Measured scan of single mutants.
Amino acid sequence: DEDSERELEKLRKNNASKEEIKEVLKRLGFSEDEAKKLAEKAG
């Protein structure tokens, strides 16, 4: 959803580590696997 998109955008701009991105995604309700895949894509 839009909030998670914004959250990811912010992380990308701040050069967050894949680990940080994954944690945020998991907080947003993604499964471990989904979060890992998305973090890879974002990283």
Rank of each mutant, 00 (worst) to 15 (best):
L25F: 01
K13I: 07
L28F: 02
D33N: 07
A42T: 12
N14K: 12
S17A: 06
K18M: 15
A42G: 09
V24T: 09
L8C: 14
A16Y: 06
L8E: 05
K37F: 03
K13D: 10
A39V: 11
E40H: 02
L11D: 07
E32K: 00
I21M: 08
A35C: 06
D1G: 10
L38A: 07
L28R: 01
R6T: 11
E32F: 00
A39Y: 05
E40G: 04
K26H: 08
R12L: 15
I21S: 01
S4V: 15
D1H: 14
D3T: 10
L25M: 05
E7W: 15
S31R: 02
R6W: 09
E32R: 00
E7R: 05
E7F: 13
E34F: 06
I21G: 01
D33I: 05
E23G: 03
K37S: 11
N14M: 09
K41Y: 08
K41P: 08
N15G: 15
E2L: 13
R12P: 05
L38P: 03
E2G: 11
K26L: 10
A35V: 08
F30Q: 02
R12H: 11
L8S: 02
A42K: 07
K37A: 12
A42F: 15
L11W: 00
A39C: 13
L25G: 04
I21N: 02
L28N: 02
A39G: 03
L25T: 04
E32W: 00
E20A: 09
K37R: 12
E19N: 06
R6M: 10
E2N: 12
G43A: 13
K36M: 14
L28M: 13
D33F: 01
L28C: 13
E2D: 11
A16S: 06
E19L: 05
E34G: 03
E7I: 15
L25Y: 01
L11G: 05
K10Q: 11
R12N: 08
K26D: 09
E2H: 12
D1M: 13
E40R: 01
K36H: 12
E34K: 02
K36G: 13
K10S: 09
K13L: 05
A16C: 13
D1I: 12
S31L: 06
E19W: 01
G29R: 00
K13N: 11
E2Y: 12
K18S: 12
E23K: 03
D33H: 06
K41C: 13
E2P: 13
E32Y: 00
K36I: 14
L11R: 06
F30R: 02
K10R: 14
R12D: 07
D3E: 11
K13F: 04
R27S: 12
K10L: 08
E5V: 13
E7N: 05
L8Q: 02
K13T: 10
R12K: 08
A42H: 15
G43H: 12
N15P: 03
R6C: 15
F30I: 06
K18V: 15
L28S: 02
G43D: 10
L11V: 08
F30D: 02
L11N: 05
E23T: 01
R6I: 10
K18I: 15
V24Y: 11
E40T: 04
R27K: 14
N14D: 08
N15H: 13
E40M: 01
A35K: 02
E23S: 02
K36V: 13
N14I: 10
A42W: 15
L28Y: 01
N14V: 08
N14R: 14
K37G: 08
A35Y: 06
E40K: 01
V24I: 11
R27I: 07
N15S: 07
A39S: 09
S17M: 07
V24H: 14
A35H: 02
V24L: 13
K37Q: 10
V24A: 15
E32A: 01
S4I: 15
R12E: 09
D3N: 10
K41T: 11
K37N: 11
L25A: 05
E9T: 03
E32L: 00
E9Y: 00
S31M: 04
L8I: 09
E34N: 03
K41V: 12
E2M: 13
S4F: 15
A35Q: 05
G29M: 00
K41R: 11
E7A: 12
E19F: 00
R12S: 08
L28V: 01
N14G: 12
L11M: 07
D1R: 14
S4K: 13
K10W: 04
E23R: 02
K10Y: 04
S17P: 05
D1Q: 14
K18F: 15
F30W: 09
G29S: 00
K22P: 00
K36W: 05
E20Y: 06
K37Y: 05
R6A: 12
L38R: 06
L28P: 02
L25R: 03
A42V: 12
I21F: 07
K41S: 12
G29I: 00
A42R: 08
L28Q: 02
N14P: 04
S31A: 07
E23H: 01
E20M: 09
I21E: 02
E9W: 00
E9P: 06
L8G: 03
A42L: 15
N14Q: 11
S31P: 08
D1L: 14
E40P: 03
K10D: 10
L38H: 06
K26W: 00
R27Y: 01
E2W: 14
S4L: 15
D3W: 14
L38Y: 04
S17G: 06
E7K: 05
S31Y: 04
G43Y: 15
K36N: 15
E5T: 09
S31Q: 05
E34R: 01
L8V: 03
L38T: 06
L28E: 03
K10G: 08
E2F: 13
G43I: 14
K13R: 08
N15I: 06
E40L: 00
L8K: 05
A16H: 04
F30T: 03
N14W: 00
E19A: 08
K37M: 11
D33A: 09
R6L: 09
N15V: 05
R6K: 13
L11F: 00
D33Q: 08
K41G: 13
